[in-house]
Simulated scan of single mutants.
Amino acid sequence: MSIDSPRFTARPGSTPLVLDSPHSGTSYPEDFGAALPLAVLRQAEDTHVEKLYDFAPQLGAAWVEAHFPRIYLDANRDTTEIDVELFDAPWPHEVTSDEVVLQKVRLGKGLIWRYTDEGQPIYDRRLSVAEGQRRIAECWAPYHQAVSNAIDAAHARHGYSIHINCHSMPSVAASHATLHPGLKHADFVIGDRDGSTSSPALSRLVCDFLGSRGYGVEYNHPYKGVELVRRYGKPQEHRHSIQIEINRRLYMDEKTLEIVQPGFDRLRKDLRDLAELLLRTDPRALQPPPAAR
Results as ranks from 00 to 15, higher is better:
Cys207Asp: 06
Pro235Phe: 02
Met1Tyr: 08
Val101Ala: 08
Ala89Asn: 10
Ala146Ile: 04
Glu258Asp: 10
Trp113Arg: 00
Glu258Ser: 13
Pro290Trp: 06
Phe209Cys: 09
Gly214Cys: 12
Arg230Phe: 03
Leu279Ser: 11
Phe32Thr: 03
Gly33Thr: 05
Gly132Ser: 09
Lys255Leu: 09
Pro200Ile: 08
Met1Ile: 14
Ala35Gln: 07
Ala10Arg: 01
Gln243Ile: 04
Cys207Phe: 03
Leu127Trp: 04
Val105Ile: 15
Arg135His: 11
Trp113Met: 02
Tyr143Asp: 05
Arg239Lys: 14
Tyr72Ile: 01
Arg231Gly: 05
His185Arg: 12
Ser171Pro: 04
Ala150Ser: 09
Pro200Cys: 10
Ser148Leu: 11
Gln236His: 11
Ala56Gln: 03
Glu138Thr: 10
Asn76Trp: 01
Gln43Arg: 13
Arg248Met: 06
Pro12Ala: 09
Ser203Met: 07
Arg135Met: 09
Arg268Thr: 15
Thr26Met: 14
Arg125Gly: 05
Leu286Phe: 08
Pro170Cys: 11
Val172Gln: 10
Pro6Arg: 10
Leu102Ile: 08
Asp192Cys: 10
Pro57Ser: 07
Ala89Pro: 07
Ser203His: 02
Arg280Asp: 13
Val100Met: 10
Ala173Asp: 12
Gln103Cys: 13
Ala10Asn: 02
Gln145Pro: 09
Pro121Asp: 08
Phe87Asp: 05
Asp152Pro: 00
Leu205Met: 06
Ala275Pro: 05
Asp124Gly: 14
Ile259Ala: 09
Leu19Arg: 01
Cys166Ile: 02
Pro69Gln: 05
Ser199Glu: 05
Leu41Ile: 07
Phe55Val: 08
Trp91Phe: 14
Asp253Ser: 13
Trp91His: 07
Leu179Met: 15
Glu254Met: 07
Gly25Asn: 05
Ala34Met: 09
Arg11Ala: 05
Trp63Gln: 03
Ile3Asn: 02
Gln145Asn: 14
Ala39Arg: 14
Ser175Leu: 14
Glu81Gly: 03
Lys51Phe: 09
Glu85Gln: 15
Met1Asn: 14
Gln120Lys: 13
Val129Gly: 01
Glu81Leu: 05
Leu286Val: 11
Asp31Phe: 13
Ala10Ile: 10
Leu107Tyr: 01
Glu65His: 13
Ala75Pro: 08
Val49Gln: 00
Asp4Val: 15
Tyr251Leu: 08
Asp265Pro: 15
Phe188Ile: 04
Cys207Ser: 11
Glu65Val: 04
Asp46Phe: 01
